[in-house]
């Protein structure tokens, strides 16, 4: 079972590389049962959207 700390590492890396099958399964399971990491994952998407907005000139 992944710790939250390891899960956050994978949630960052999934923005930069394709995770392996077992990494994906482990992460999916973790965020399913962990509210904190579930929020963290949404926050990663918001962060990326904010960067797009900031750099895309529509801010």
């Amino acid at each position: 079972m992944l710790s939250c700390r390891q899960a956050t590492e994978l949630m960052s890396q999934e923005q930069d590389r394709a995770l392996s099958f077992s990494e994906r399964i482990g992460l999916r399971l973790h965020v399913w049962i962990c509210a904190g990491c579930n929020s963290y994952r949404r926050q990663m998407s918001v962060l990326r959207a904010a960067c797009r907005r900031f750099g895309g000139g529509t801010s």
């Binding site: 710790s3 939250c4 700390r5 390891q6 509210a35 904190g36 990491c37 929020s39 963290y40 949404r42 926050q43 918001v46 959207a49 904010a50 907005r53 801010s59």
Partner: peptide, 24 residues
């Protein structure tokens, strides 16, 4: 942010961000 076992500290657990689009 994390305790020794790698779990979120009670005070550091990420929360829901309300309506980010509105913030943007």
């Amino acid at each position: 942010l994390f305790d020794r076992r790698g779990h979120w500290q009670e005070t550091a657990r990420p929360g829901r961000w309300a309506d980010p689009e509105a913030s943007f």
